[in-house]
Computed example of a mutant assay.
Amino acid sequence: MKTIITIIFFTILSFTAQAQNNTADVNVETMEMSIVTQTINEIKTASNTEVARLYKFKNSRIKRDLYFITKANKAKMA
């Protein structure tokens, strides 16, 4: 029964494939473009200057904030 159904299925597919209308080949118009050999080099220079700050003093606010110690970090004696 399975073989009969598959044979019928393939025959129906072959008939539907033959019944399709063939479309005519579409010709594409080609355009000829010239090659550009001139290159433009642009160099952009940024005039922004950035300053990095170094703190000399031990008690400066930035260093003190970055080097914080919590109570959980302290060692406990048993």
Rank of each mutant, 00 (worst) to 15 (best):
T45N: 13
N21C: 12
K2E: 06
V28R: 00
Y55D: 07
K2H: 08
K71T: 01
A52M: 13
I40N: 08
A52Q: 15
N48H: 10
M33W: 12
N41M: 02
A72C: 03
T37H: 00
I5L: 08
N27L: 06
T45D: 10
K74R: 01
I62Q: 11
I43M: 10
V51T: 13
A72W: 01
A17K: 08
T49L: 10
V28L: 01
F9V: 07
F68V: 08
R64C: 04
R64W: 03
L13S: 01
T3D: 05
L66A: 07
K63L: 09
F9R: 07
A75V: 06
F68N: 08
E50Q: 10
F9M: 05
T45L: 11
N22R: 10
A24M: 07
N48S: 15
M31V: 14
F15P: 03
N21M: 12
K76E: 05
I43D: 15
N41D: 09
T37I: 00
K63A: 12
V28N: 00
V26H: 00
Q20S: 03
A52T: 15
F57K: 11
V51I: 13
E32G: 06
M1I: 06
V26L: 02
I12Q: 02
I7R: 03
R53K: 14
N27V: 07
R53G: 12
I12C: 04
T49W: 05
T6N: 05
S14R: 04
E29D: 05
